[in-house]
């Protein structure tokens, strides 16, 4: 067991898979000699050469569109978008093309590829409007895509290996605040974390906090505070937002009868609304309180100044307050 950071988990998943399968290649801006702006592809260029680690022109639609072409021709491309905020020019390729290739060809063609992008921000990340967004709900709305948002180094590696081997396009969004702040031991031997399975991070009988991505850690911190007052919060990490793990959502909601859904992305029309709807449809009889949600406010993204960023970001305090509201209901 080696202790590694979240970004090293991402990097080592790609390296391991490129050694195992010569169909795997990486393309994106600065992924070559520089090793990516966050170092996620560090060393790959030297190890595998420019044919497999392709420095793309500064053109996001092309990064995804060319990767789609590689997938159509039988390769297993990994397309890196430098920041999730810069993915909109590639949305046509992702939504109109990658997501629909299997369906529109009646199964004749398929598009096995991974689209990796750093997402998210925070009070101390200083990413501002265009280096901080959490756009996963836009992709989670689209049948044909899978959307993974890992919260730990162990999950990041196991889920990325699963994503590369998946027969369909997978959006893989990595929270940049976790890249170097999080370090844990991960298995040395190959392991896969299946896409579409959530995980109970912390058991509890009183309230469920259903979340994913970096917010998982904030929810655990908040849950620890409530535990001191005897309120046991169960924290569920969805890990994947498409497909959602319905069974873990339903089982935790039925167990506790009180549910808070928390995510960094803008709250309205978000993943939390879908989770709340599943709870309402499947667990109505077992609920002791209305399903509550907490997420980004109605501003476009996280502003630059810390005083403004605090308005957007969740953090343990806001989650704790919401959990206490639910506990008192």
């Amino acid at each position: 067991m080696a202790e590694i950071t979240y970004v090293e988990a991402i990097r080592s998943a790609m390296e391991d898979e490129m050694r195992r399968d010569d169909r795997v290649l990486v393309m994106g801006e600065d992924v070559g000699a520089k090793g990516g702006v966050f170092g996620a592809t560090a060393g790959l260029f030297a190890a595998f050469g420019e044919e497999r680690v392709i420095d793309s022109p500064l053109a996001e639609a092309a990064i995804v569109g060319v990767a789609i072409g590689c997938a159509l021709a039988g390769l297993r491309p990994i397309a890196e978008i430098q920041f999730l905020d810069f993915i909109p020019p590639a949305m046509d390729q992702i939504i109109s093309e990658a997501a629909k290739i299997r369906y529109r060809s009646n199964g004749d063609w398929s598009c096995p590829m991974v689209i990796r992008a750093p997402c998210g921000g925070g009070v101390h990340v200083h990413g501002a409007l265009y280096h901080s967004q959490s756009l996963e709900a836009m992709f989670a709305h689209v049948p044909g895509l899978k959307v993974v948002v890992p919260s730990t180094p162990t999950d990041a590696k196991g889920l990325l290996l699963a994503a590369i081997r998946d027969p369909d396009p997978v959006c893989f969004f990595e929270h940049k605040a976790l890249y170097r702040s999080l370090r844990e031991e991960v298995p040395d031997d190959e392991y896969l974390v299946p896409i579409g399975q959530g995980r109970v991070v912390r058991e509890g009988r009183d309230i469920s906090c259903i979340t994913y991505g970096a917010t998982v850690h904030e929810a655990v911190a908040a849950a620890d505070r409530l535990a001191k007052d005897g309120v046991q919060v169960e924290v569920v990490d969805l890990r994947t937002v498409r497909p959602l793990d319905r069974s873990i959502i339903i089982s935790t909601a039925r167990k506790t009868g009180k549910v808070l859904v928390a995510h960094e992305a803008n709250l309205a029309i978000g993943v939390g609304a879908e989770v709340a709807a599943i709870v309402a449809e499947e667990c109505f009889q077992q609920l002791d309180a209305p399903v509550m949600r907490i997420g980004g406010p109605e501003i476009p993204a996280i502003p630059f100044a810390e005083s403004l960023a605090e308005v957007y970001c969740l953090g343990p305090d806001k989650i704790e307050a919401k959990l206490r509201e639910l506990a008192a209901y």
Binding site: A61, G65, V66, G69, C70, A73, G74, P77
Partner: peptide, 18 residues
């Protein structure tokens, strides 16, 4: 969508080269 296929052909060609 018009011209999306241009990029797919480039990727297909990139694969042939690889």
């Amino acid at each position: 969508p018009v011209a999306t296929q241009i990029l797919h052909a480039v990727g297909v060609a990139q694969s042939f080269r690889y």
